[in-house]
Design a protein around this nucleic acid. Sequence first.
DNA 1: GCATTTTTTGTAATCGATTACATTTATTCG
DNA 2: CGAATAAATGTAATCGATTACAAAAAATGC
Lengths: 354, 354
Amino acid sequence: MKTITRIDQIFLITRGIKKMVKMSDVAKLAEVSNATVSRVLSSPENVREETRKRVLESIKELNYQPNTIARSFRKMETKSILVIVPDVTNQFFSEVLRGIEQKAGENGYQVLLGNSNNDVEKEYDFLNQLRQRQADGMILLTARMKQEVIEEFSEDFPVVLACEYKEGSSIPTVSIDNISGARKATEHLINLGHKRIAHLSGPMEVILSRDRLKGYHQAMLRNELETDSVLVQEGDYSYEAGYNLMNKLCALEEPPTAVFAANDEMAIGAIKAAKENFFRVPEDIAVVGFDDIKISSIFEPSLTTVSQPKLEIGEKAMELLLKQMNFEELNRKQIVLEDKLILRQSCGFNKKKK
Amino acid sequence: MKTITRIDQIFLITRGIKKMVKMSDVAKLAEVSNATVSRVLSSPENVREETRKRVLESIKELNYQPNTIARSFRKMETKSILVIVPDVTNQFFSEVLRGIEQKAGENGYQVLLGNSNNDVEKEYDFLNQLRQRQADGMILLTARMKQEVIEEFSEDFPVVLACEYKEGSSIPTVSIDNISGARKATEHLINLGHKRIAHLSGPMEVILSRDRLKGYHQAMLRNELETDSVLVQEGDYSYEAGYNLMNKLCALEEPPTAVFAANDEMAIGAIKAAKENFFRVPEDIAVVGFDDIKISSIFEPSLTTVSQPKLEIGEKAMELLLKQMNFEELNRKQIVLEDKLILRQSCGFNKKKK
DNA sequence: GCATTTTTTGTAATCGATTACATTTATTCG
DNA sequence: CGAATAAATGTAATCGATTACAAAAAATGC
């Protein structure tokens, strides 16, 4: 009966690095070969019950933890994926992230978070990280890089675009139909009788922004409304941009009676500015946003907005990525999920009288 | 003059795995040994200019990317750290994260994000990930695990606690003085003339919650105010908890005239509930929060709150971790940063007349 | 009981970069 | 110029788990 003491286990501390128990230590104690220990861990059904028990006991006794780096090295996979977010502090993305994380966790993948900080250069850096095998795959929640680059890259590595996409490309993508969502939002304002409707757009180099603008234009055109070009203002999806742009609009000789903002953060900034300019929302100016982030329902007036299925976007994106990493065929490469217009107070809808 | 075509580079696709260019390929093309290539990459000053140039050209020509897994394996380090967050969607943490990310990036470290979802079991799982060397160190933004466990763990691996801490432990920690912060907040309400002050606390098993409660009690005691035990309600830091608890308080025969909430999310939930119960904020009920998250200044009424230096907490935590990973001595293990009471409308302060 | 098949275990090569040590080449200096 | 020293490069072991293949042990069948 051999007993291993704690002293035996913890041993030498050399230059601060703890000497770890390795597989061969377990093998020795259990009086089997390295291979058998490995098998107990990865395919226990091929090991005789008795041997397996002995090995497991040794593992426990030595408190052995397999060295993931060595395993990764041998198998040339990290069991982790990289998710690139334009801005970690943005609520919208953190919910998508949650969807990704969940599916990833279920399938034994770690999520490495990459914050691009809205900087394209950073995005390119992240591609290299994947090239260097720091992760097995990648989900991009922002894609400002050149189309050719991403496309070529996606031929060699598992990549999924979520939310953003590239026109006419074959990169697996999960998103909603931004054009129709924006159209719905704008049409809602039109149906409420508004004619002078402004749009606070996102940056034009981002396709989402162009799509939402397009939806806005379509709605205006279909209803034979003119769009005064001064009513379309380009922002960057930030609260501050919404606030500043709305201040501009309020200063116009003929201010709009309604505003469709390309996301909720800008919409809230806009409402804030409108109020400060003594416009009542929704009475004087109705506002509609996009995304349905958490504050939108809490803020007053609560925000009418186009709701994206954030969690589902994350989950589906991870599913697409998993399939690629497992070399499964993708039957559908472009997944378009349903958005939904949520009516709240900021455009005059009242759930309950107050 | 040897030319390498794209075909040469991209080669065989076997079972979907692209054959990568490796160091030996570069060595062969540059007609040097493996070691020299390695040196060009990690200590170029030891390689003759001419040779170095030749190697760099080959690297470029073959588009060689070092295999990080192999490097990690050999050096037994991943150059990544693990950050455990109780909830990714929480604004407060995402800002701390940004501080961590920044410092990590500057020092060549990747940030692996772990979402514990407020589940202790998950936290224990993350410890094992570190044991298995998935990362070189770990920052805990939540620490519900048993003190002994974390402490023993922290002897073998680089760990930093941020925001949370463990009493009388020697684990490196970055935080503010929550007791004094809470006391300040409560005293502010007392100075405004409030006597019946409620407290919406966090879960009692979290030390932050206990500290903030303690600060509240201290302030009351010092000012010889009685604390009606029905006025202290335990929540879980969520908007919903604040909302529900405030509904309870409003239904009291003698409702409080002021509320100190243990964080901003609960404070905002509380204001929302107060309003729905026809209490005006701050006229009928003054509210103070804790954390100073972004919405707090946007929400109406804007929220008086104790501001934590979120970014700095993240940076300092990463600095402590870096020192541990580099086996440097820590001169100070417990870092306490300054908080600041920010006066806004929710307790009757008006920056500008409206 | 012995040949055949099946199951279990062991042996040793392998993944790709790093690095201690050995060797070669270049430089310095009397 | 040649010895001594310094600089540049090469050789080969190494990190720890996995796995193809070989060998041994157990089970089966006649």
